[in-house]
Design a protein around this nucleic acid. Sequence first.
DNA 1: TGTCTACGTTGACACAGATCAAAGCTCCTG
DNA 2: CAGGAGCTTTGATCTGTGTCAACGTAGACA
Lengths: 245, 245
Amino acid sequence: MHARLNALSVPALREACSQCNLRELCLPVGLSDRELGQLDELVNLRRRILRGQHLYRGNDPFEAIYAIKTGFFKTDVLLEDGREQVTGFQMAGEILGLDGIGSEKHTCNAVALEDSEVCVIPFTDLENYSREIGALQHHFHKVMSREIVRDHGVMMLLGIMRAEERLAAFLLNLSQRFTARGYSPTEFNLRMTRNEIGSYLGLKLETVSRAFSRFQEEGLITVHQKHIQILDVAGLKKLLSERRA
Amino acid sequence: MHARLNALSVPALREACSQCNLRELCLPVGLSDRELGQLDELVNLRRRILRGQHLYRGNDPFEAIYAIKTGFFKTDVLLEDGREQVTGFQMAGEILGLDGIGSEKHTCNAVALEDSEVCVIPFTDLENYSREIGALQHHFHKVMSREIVRDHGVMMLLGIMRAEERLAAFLLNLSQRFTARGYSPTEFNLRMTRNEIGSYLGLKLETVSRAFSRFQEEGLITVHQKHIQILDVAGLKKLLSERRA
DNA sequence: TGTCTACGTTGACACAGATCAAAGCTCCTG
DNA sequence: CAGGAGCTTTGATCTGTGTCAACGTAGACA
């Protein structure tokens, strides 16, 4: 089930957390230089996941959480009958695997949407280190809490928003996360299919496609396949706040 | 904003965690007797919340998490335009407030649906104690992780299930949680209105009402106002698994 | 005991989004 | 560079749930 780890995927200690340009977004936030050095010991293994491969699957034993170094993932849950619910899309600096702590098994699938690399953080070690490093403990708690808050946002989206509101929220959220990583807020390539967007947003792929077309007609964005350009951020935001009574 | 704490709401040290009959469901799971004693020091304050009152509101500063000693709560998020998304219903032994860790402010509202009592767990203290007590640290992580997994379940519900599937899943979930607390799996009183159920399930109250009526016609349950009796658990489960292609 | 208010049920109808179907675009592979 | 697979777009139609409206029920309170 696990991808074989070859020698190349373990460059270890090279470019550890203390050197990583994601350290302001990722687990090390708020650590002192000395503490960062300790984290380098904890996170000394990397794993490369090719596009389409699983980082883990539902029911795999839970051993580690993963920080995305490069690339892009989706997480999803499957129903027996084949229905899929995408529970999130994750990008560099974000943490995968938190779902597994509670039951010691993973409860969803994590699939790379492009060739990716993750830092492996053995969970027992993380707990041990957090008992030493208060700042690490606290930040880890924040990461989990934010995941809960993010999930509430998705519930909101699924529970009370209409199709175009959902898609606008989705685009704005991506834009904001790309910005935080130093990319353009207004121009990016989607890594996921219309079907995956639809699954995440509780819509069918045709509805997603139509909403994209509609946004384009209205001059809010341009779409060419997976390439998106946001022309009118304010317009998208307006879609979210205005609501016919 | 905070309810005033009167003398009666602080019986402290009496019936602490070590004596509490919820200790197998709540935060103390997996602690040794000695560790339980330590927890008694951490959790020494109770707060009484009357029906309809808020335990906390979105934007309140985050200081503590809460274990429900008795009673029943809902958590919700409000949009500016008044739309409400109920994000969960919580009962005895469950933990409230985890949403606030990430931003040091609460991000949702917690409202008592019946007169309730919660144990106040100051969060800084909890972090300090978890650095001492590995089992507490680990169990706390499990609690947070399970909240994430629960949220994924709700996304699934909202994203891909039809109205009757949602309601069946909701009833079965309540039944299972009541069972874990020693109540009847098949007969209970709903603490929430049809509107609140609808908000949680992403449906309108009329749809919830109709689904209840339908279940009753089909002999799956009886409904009289808030009183529910499940007549055919297997039938409800079948609703969830069977799905016209 | 009567009335008020909040909550729940039911019916008729409307509509957003699903479903079904056909065709176009891109990129990969041989 | 031909063929095919996977993805996307668009149109036509269908349907589950929302919306609107009327009425019913139960508990609270004067």
